[in-house]
C-alpha cells in the first residue's frame, strides 16, 4: 500500500512568543496508506483535531513537513492550500458546520462554487449525490430544519461533492445517537470500499475495534503514544 499522507517531525504551537503560548503537537511522525481507514484516538485535548487540521491543510505546522501524495504542502501559499483542500479532502466536522439559511442542496454545492465547473453540472452532480444519501425530498429544506441524521448526511454529501481522495472526520459521532453513529460508520466504510482514504479523529469507544479500521494512532498531550495495525 503506498503512502498518501506522511508527516515528519511536525509540531504546532499556538500564539508563539505570547504569554498564552500553547504547544498543541510535538514531533508527530505518521504515515497513512492510500485507501486505508486510520483512527486518531485519544482524550479531549490530546491534539487529534489539530493534527487533522494540519493534515487537511486547514492550518500550517510550526515545524516539520506534511506530504500529501508525496508533495510537501507545509510551505505552500494559501491559494494552493485552498485548491488542495477542495480537490483532495472532504471534511466531516463534529458539529457538521453546515451554513444556516441555505438549503441542503446549496450547502452540498458550495465547495464547487469557486471553480469553473458550470452550475448546471454542479447541480447535476449534487442531485446524484443527494439521491444516494436519500435526501431528495429534503434538498430544498433549510439545513437548520433538517433532523440530526439528515444534517449529518448533508455534511457527508458536501464532503464528497468534489470527489476527494481523502475524507477527514472530526468526532463525527460525538452528537449522534447509536443508530445514527452506526449509519455514519457504515457510510464511511462504504466510501473506503470505493477507494477513499478515511481518517477519523475520535474519543468515542463506539468507533473503536471495528475490523475496517486499518491503523490506530493513539495520542495524548500532543504526542503519539502508540501506532497499531499499520500495514
Amino acid at each position: 500500500m503506498d503512502t498518501i499522507i506522511k508527516t515528519t517531525g511536525i509540531s504546532k504551537i499556538y500564539n508563539p512568543g505570547m504569554p498564552d503560548e500553547m504547544r498543541a503537537l510535538s514531533d508527530i511522525n505518521i504515515e497513512i496508506g492510500r485507501e486505508e481507514i486510520a483512527l486518531l484516538k485519544g482524550p479531549s485535548g490530546s491534539g487529534k483535531t489539530t493534527l487533522l487540521s494540519l493534515i487537511g491543510c486547514m492550518s500550517r505546522p510550526s515545524e516539520g513537513s506534511i506530504f500529501i501524495n508525496g508533495k510537501d504542502v507545509a510551505g505552500l501559499p494559501e491559494r494552493f492550500l485552498a485548491e488542495i483542500r477542495r480537490k483532495t479532502f472532504g471534511f466531516i466536522f463534529q458539529h457538521f458546520n453546515l451554513i444556516r439559511g441555505l438549503s441542503a442542496l446549496e450547502n452540498i454545492m458550495l465547495p464547487l462554487y469557486p471553480t469553473n465547473i458550470k452550475i448546471s453540472e454542479i447541480r447535476e452532480r449534487t442531485e446524484t449525490i443527494i439521491m444516494d444519501f436519500g435526501l431528495l425530498d429534503k434538498k430544498k429544506t433549510l439545513v437548520e430544519r433538517l433532523s440530526g441524521g439528515e444534517q449529518q448526511r448533508t455534511a457527508i454529501a458536501r464532503a464528497l461533492i468534489g470527489n476527494p481522495d481523502i475524507i477527514l472526520a472530526d468526532e463525527p459521532t460525538a452528537h449522534l445517537d447509536t443508530k445514527l453513529s452506526e449509519e455514519l460508520l457504515e457510510i464511511l466504510f462504504a466510501l473506503n470500499k470505493k477507494g477513499k482514504t478515511i481518517i477519523i479523529a475520535t474519543h468515542d469507544p463506539f468507533v473503536y475495534g471495528r475490523d475496517m479500521i486499518g491503523r490506530i494512532i493513539e495520542m495524548r498531550d500532543g504526542t503519539i503514544q502508540e501506532v497499531t495495525g499499520s500495514s
Partner: peptide
C-alpha cells in the same frame, strides 16, 4: 467553513 471546504481567501 467556506475556507475549510476549499474557498480561497480571494
Amino acid at each position: 467553513i467556506l475556507k475549510a471546504i476549499g474557498w480561497d481567501s480571494s
